[in-house]
């Protein structure tokens, strides 16, 4: 390798090894340490020339049903939200791909904008809409559709709504990218051969858009599993998701080893979808 080449790559390489790779190694290390009343609050890996490793934190995750529920809760919320996002996002992406070209960029921009707009503010907006004396209840009461306020927040409904809302652009963008590439002549050919519109959709459009569907599913599912802000702000005390439990373990209980073990458990859960995502990204690039 010549020196110019080395000089160019060395800097980002060293940065990422130090600030991306090595932190993950440290998480593994602390996940096998004991909690300690010390600063920092865990036992060292080597002490007196001996290696100290414990599986206590992982055993705790396995034995305490709270963690199981949080683990399963994250998968369940993320999976349902992903399906709902696909059902809402597909017609939206297809609609944009079918509008005249001069409108497309504007509509696409309108999808991208909320994606870059503050995530926190978009979740916050739903609190004002959904709470007991919030905008939705206020409107329904004044129209006379309901007599008592509906319970719209701090439940499964509000968490799923928040997830679908926050991650909808992640679904629409890859779907649009795929659907936009489809040649309308394919549909015309199928129609000429006597296929009905719904039939054309199932037989032609849907199969050809599968790569976009796969990318959208992964792009929504992966961050949704690790989500903390949405279950914390829109979910009630009964909402259990692994990201929220990890946050509480760290910031409320100051139990760094258990938080680290939870992080590793989350990574194991996401290893397969993240691997698939990388493969897809490489395919696109």
């Amino acid at each position: 390798m010549n020196t110019r080449r080395f000089g160019l790559i060395a800097l980002p390489y060293a940065w990422l090894v130090l600030f991306f790779l090595s932190p993950l190694v440290i998480v593994i290390k602390i996940s096998v340490a004991n909690e300690a009343v010390a600063i920092p609050p865990y036992t060292p890996l080597f002490e007196g020339g001996r290696l100290h490793v414990t599986d206590a934190n992982y055993l705790l995750l396995l034995s305490d049903s709270l963690y199981w529920k949080a683990y399963w809760g994250a998968i369940r919320y993320a999976a349902i939200a992903t399906i709902l996002t696909l059902l809402i996002g597909y017609p939206l992406a297809y609609g944009i791909a079918r509008t005249p070209v001069r409108w497309r960029n504007l509509l696409l921009m309108a999808i991208i904008l909320p994606f870059w707009t503050s995530f926190l503010i978009r979740v916050y907006a739903w609190i004002g809409l959904l709470k007991e004396n919030g905008i939705v209840n206020h409107a329904l009461l004044s129209v006379g559709l309901i007599d008592t306020p509906l319970r719209l927040i701090d439940n499964d409904f509000s968490v799923l709504l928040g997830l679908v809302y926050a991650y909808l652009p992640f679904m629409v963008l890859p779907l649009y990218a795929q659907l936009e590439k489809l040649d309308p002549a394919l549909n015309e050919a199928a129609a000429d051969l006597g296929a009905r519109p719904l039939h054309i959709f199932w037989q032609v459009t849907l199969p050809l858009s599968l790569p976009g569907i796969a990318a959208g599913i992964l792009l929504v599912f992966i961050p949704a599993v690790g989500e903390f802000v949405i279950p914390d702000l829109l979910g009630g005390p009964k909402t259990l998701m692994i990201g929220k439990i990890l946050w509480d373990e760290f910031f409320t209980n100051h139990d760094w080893p258990t938080a680290s073990a939870l992080a590793i458990a989350m990574l194991v859960l996401l290893a397969l979808p993240m691997g698939l995502m990388r493969r897809l990204l490489r395919g696109i690039a």
Partner: peptide, 13 residues
């Protein structure tokens, strides 16, 4: 694709 909560925790550690 890394969940933010893992990036945050690991960097702090």
């Amino acid at each position: 694709v890394m969940p933010e909560i893992i990036s945050g925790l690991s960097l702090l550690l």
